[in-house]
């Protein structure tokens, strides 16, 4: 990127300036609007209300659980995609990244068709093991993992592709097993990528709405996470609570971006 830099005398063509100002306005104005409409005086009361605290607690635990699940399952998937010559790899890559572009509601419907009571697996799970995921906190975690895991996979795969494989080869020639090599050499070398992926995954899980409400429903303390609580608030005419919840989510998003700032500055 730095190699192609030429002098442009700092002059920005109007044809680029105007649309970029509009673009920034589209991105920034909604947040400014929230700040302007925020019920600052009621903010402490709303933030400390039972409904908000319950939703916050649920959101933090489910997003963390979904991230843990994504790490356990997603890092190996990323490794398969980046480091093996397994047939059908590009198909696999396509399949696992589909949720990135899929409307989350569709994900929720799909999950319901599989894990719902009359679903392909859900019926069997219910009868054989007495396990039923819809309308449970575990269902929320599954919905969030469905939507958020691809972020982790993409991030970790990118990191694996850009690190030097020769360290792995050296470890192997020194007699390390494939598993030991993965644990002791590969994983530490991509740790920053894994961390970045986990942070993105967590943020995405925290913001998940569509798949959750469709698959897991909405009940305080069990399945009603922050975004669902915000939707219920605006749907039932409680704009103040909706705004406060929105600000809370924005604060978390900003915190995530700040946490990842170091990776941005390099660009």
């Amino acid at each position: 990127m730095t190699g192609h830099r030429r002098r442009t005398d700092g002059r920005v063509p109007v044809a680029l300036l105007v649309p970029s100002v509009l673009g920034v306005a589209v991105l920034v104005l909604p947040m400014v609007g929230l700040l302007l409409r925020a019920p600052w005086r009621r903010l402490p009361d709303i933030l400390s209300s039972d409904a908000v605290l319950t939703a916050l607690r649920l959101s933090l635990t489910t997003a963390t659980a979904a991230t843990a699940l994504s790490l356990v399952c997603g890092v190996p998937v990323a490794w398969l995609l980046a480091r093996t010559r397994m047939p059908g790899r590009s198909l696999l890559r396509g399949v696992v990244t589909v949720p990135l572009v899929l409307p989350p509601v569709i994900g929720g419907i799909a999950l319901l068709m599989v894990f719902g009571r009359r679903g392909v697996l859900g019926g069997w799970l219910d009868e054989a093991l007495g396990v039923s995921l819809p309308f449970t906190t575990a269902g929320v975690v599954l919905a969030q993992a469905f939507v958020a895991m691809p972020f982790l996979i993409v991030s970790v795969e990118g990191a694996l592709r850009t690190t030097d494989r020769r360290y792995d080869d050296v470890a192997a020639t020194l007699g390390a097993s494939a598993w030991t090599t993965f644990r002791r050499v590969t994983l530490p070398s991509v740790a920053p990528g894994v961390l970045a992926g986990a942070v993105l995954c967590w943020a995405r899980a925290l913001g998940e709405f569509g798949a959750t409400v469709t698959f897991a429903g909405s009940f305080p303390g069990t399945t009603r996470t922050l975004p669902l609580q915000a939707y219920v608030a605006i749907g039932s005419g409680d704009t103040d609570t909706a705004i406060v919840l929105s600000l809370l989510m924005i604060a978390v998003s900003v915190a995530v971006l700040v946490a990842m700032r170091r990776r941005w500055v390099g660009a």
């Binding site: 990127m1 990135l100 972020f151 993409v154 991030s155 990118g158 990191a159 850009t162 990528g193 970045a196 993105l200 990842m260 990776r263 941005w264 390099g266 660009a267």
Partner: peptide
Amino acid sequence: ARRVGMLVQA
């Protein structure tokens, strides 16, 4: 840089 680019995209 590419990695960061991917993250920004993501």
